[in-house]
């Protein structure tokens, strides 16, 4: 087990965002983290990556407790957080170089990896433009490159494919599959059930801060499709009532 999460708890004021979440991730797997809006996905992933302090619980990455020995743990982690800024006055190349050097890479390694990642993720033509001029999808791609640049053993990606075009998504998925095949571990959250079903080999479903199901894809699906299982776990479809006016078209 390369990532172990035990009894995480986090509340903001009166609302409980994560309630006793526990799950484990195998080395070399691509782990999908799914849940409805506001279920606590981002909060959980932020705690795992050392960005948000939990009220209780433990996160162990490759044998290192993230909250006891953050510096050691952070060397092993590659992070793509959701809805956080980048230093967007830097150009793409500067941004990647910054991330690389902060993780202890030297100049030549940083440079050659920037070039490699630019080709792999289709960023080549945009590296000399400031990040603030990038589209949302481009920002996701450069963030993914920044998360990968120090070759972490565990990647934690929060909504990595939101607003990314299909071609780039396919490219990035390829890259992640290769990364996992070589022994790397990926934890990603997504709303896109098809994509999670296609890419991930293990899944956890989180609803209202609780992990309702976790395991291999087949275990969690239990015979039906992931989407049906997900909707079922999330409380089923709510019968739509009282919206009769919606079907009385005004013209």
């Amino acid at each position: 087990m390369v990532l172990e999460v035990r009894g995480l708890r986090k509340s903001f004021g009166g609302t409980v965002a994560v309630d006793d979440a526990s799950f484990t991730v195998r080395r070399g797997s691509i782990f999908g983290f799914v849940g409805p809006n506001g279920a606590g996905k981002t909060t959980t992933l932020s705690i795992i990556t050392g960005l948000l302090r939990p009220d209780a619980g433990q996160v162990v990455v490759g044998g290192t407790d993230v909250w006891r020995e953050p510096t050691t743990a952070k060397r092993k982690l590659g992070v793509l957080p959701d809805r956080m800024r980048l230093f967007d006055r830097l150009t793409g190349a500067q941004m990647l170089y910054y991330a690389a050097v902060l993780h202890g890479l030297d100049r030549s390694a940083a440079r050659s990896r920037i070039d490699d990642l630019a080709v792999a993720l289709g960023l080549d033509g945009s590296l000399d433009r400031p990040v603030r001029d990038y589209s949302v999808g481009m920002v996701k791609k450069i963030s993914l490159a920044a998360a990968l640049i120090h070759s972490p053993s565990v990647l934690v990606l929060d909504e990595p494919f939101e607003s990314v075009d299909p071609v780039s998504t396919a490219q990035a998925v390829d890259l992640l599959t290769r990364f996992a095949a070589a022994g790397g571990t990926v934890v990603l959250s997504s709303h896109n059930m098809d994509l999670v079903e296609r890419v991930c080999d293990s899944v956890a479903v989180i609803v209202a801060g609780r992990v309702l199901a976790a395991g291999t894809l087949d275990e969690v699906r239990a015979g039906s499709s992931l989407e049906d299982r997900f909707v079922e776990l999330a409380g089923g479809r709510v019968a739509v009532e009282g919206l009769e006016w919606l079907t009385t078209f005004s013209d």
Partner: peptide, 26 residues
Amino acid sequence: PAHGLGWFDLVPATPAGVIAARSLLY
């Protein structure tokens, strides 16, 4: 050079160095 790094080329490739260059840029 594939991509110019501007002031980042002028500072040592250490965390303090790049943070200084980024800070200068801002």
